[in-house]
């Protein structure tokens, strides 16, 4: 009898999933929803609140893409992935794009066959220790027990760093950020290492954040960015230029507050091209003219997203640093909209 549930579910799944082979853009449009892979919960980057609403820096990228493609920033299905499952989820077409603080590396790009569409956060692996330990440099950590979130590039960086400096350590691999935090606070490890942004986000949730310090060493380059499957360049372009639109918007002074006003036409031709009052950029992408306007309206330009989710006014309190616009001495740089 219960067999029919399976068949029913199969029908429903079949209807819902459809074919997802080549043209992701068409699939997303047909489906009316963007499937976006995110973390299972990292405050500031992607975490569901008490009402099940997803919020965060990575989430905002998903929402901007959904707004650009579908015209509705809430037409996103957030699919939580772990370090282990994220790449299969993307490769198998379960998700259309992955925005899960994923490091752009050679082997992921070339060997695992993904396309990184850009960098939305320049990060590096750092260390957090309790102040009481009196450690001021990572080189003093000989013999320490280190908590690592597993399934990321961090465990390889860590092994390399300690080997290079010829000091020993005890790794404690941990599946989720919450558990790592619990271990670290209970003193089961002396050091917690992950991306510096993640450390700051984690420290922000502590009862007494001031009792913990981030060590000065940043032991790796971690350019984090959204990625899509290899081979579907049209879709890659959509995600890439949505991200670039957010970045360019900040550079050009387009914000969620004034975008509606600027969309009626300005003297700056590049602003006009982005907002669709001049040229046919949207059409070239396979979207309508107002795609970028909607993407910016979804949660603001790059700077606004940064400040709202992880900036200095939030509990996470990250400075722009490397992630300032290139005009301010940072690395955030969008190719021209032309």
């Amino acid at each position: 009898m219960k067999k029919s549930v399976l068949f029913g579910a199969l029908t429903v799944a079949g209807l819902a999933a459809g074919a997802s082979a080549a043209a992701t853009l068409d699939d997303v449009k047909a489906r009316g929803k963007l499937n976006c892979g995110v973390t299972t919960g990292l405050v500031g980057f992607a975490a569901p609140d008490a009402n099940g609403e997803w919020n965060g820096f990575d989430v905002a990228v998903c929402r901007a893409v959904a707004a650009a493609v579908l015209g509705d920033a809430s037409a996103v299905e957030f699919i939580p992935t772990t370090g282990k499952t994220r790449f299969t989820a993307l490769a198998s077409g379960e998700i259309d794009m992955l925005a899960r603080n994923t490091t752009w590396t050679f082997s992921r790009d070339v060997d695992l066959k993904f396309t990184f569409v850009g960098v939305n956060y320049y990060d590096g692996q750092g260390f957090m220790v309790p102040k009481a330990l009196g450690v001021s440099s990572a080189k003093d950590l000989d013999g320490a027990t280190v908590c690592i979130q597993t399934g990321t590039t961090t465990e390889l960086n860590l092994a390399d760093y300690f080997r290079k400096n010829n000091i020993s350590y005890e790794p404690v691999p941990i599946e989720t950020n919450a558990e790592a935090q619990q271990q670290y606070l209970a003193g089961a490890c002396d050091v917690y290492t992950t991306d510096a942004s993640g450390l700051a986000a984690t420290r922000a949730t502590f009862e007494a954040p001031g009792d913990h310090v981030l060590l000065p060493e940043i032991i790796s380059k971690e350019p984090l960015g959204p990625l899509v499957r290899h081979g579907d360049d049209d879709w890659a372009d959509v995600v890439r230029w949505t991200l670039n639109a957010l970045i360019a918007a900040e550079e050009l002074g387009i914000s969620s507050a004034n975008v509606a006003e600027l969309a009626s036409g300005t003297n700056n031709p590049e602003v006009n091209r982005i907002l669709g009052t001049e040229g046919t950029l949207g059409e070239m992408l396979g979207l309508d003219a107002e795609w970028a306007k909607r993407a910016i309206m979804a949660s603001g330009n790059y700077g606004e997203i940064f400040e709202k989710n992880i900036g200095e006014a939030t509990p996470i309190g990250l400075a722009r640093g490397l992630n300032a616009q290139w005009t301010d001495g940072g690395l955030i740089y969008s190719p021209p909209f032309r």
Binding site: G41, A50, A178, E179, Q182
Partner: peptide
């Protein structure tokens, strides 16, 4: 429990 609830700032611990 392991994910969203323990990871949230409100209920960590």
């Amino acid at each position: 429990i392991r994910g969203p609830i323990l990871a949230s700032t409100d209920w960590n611990g």
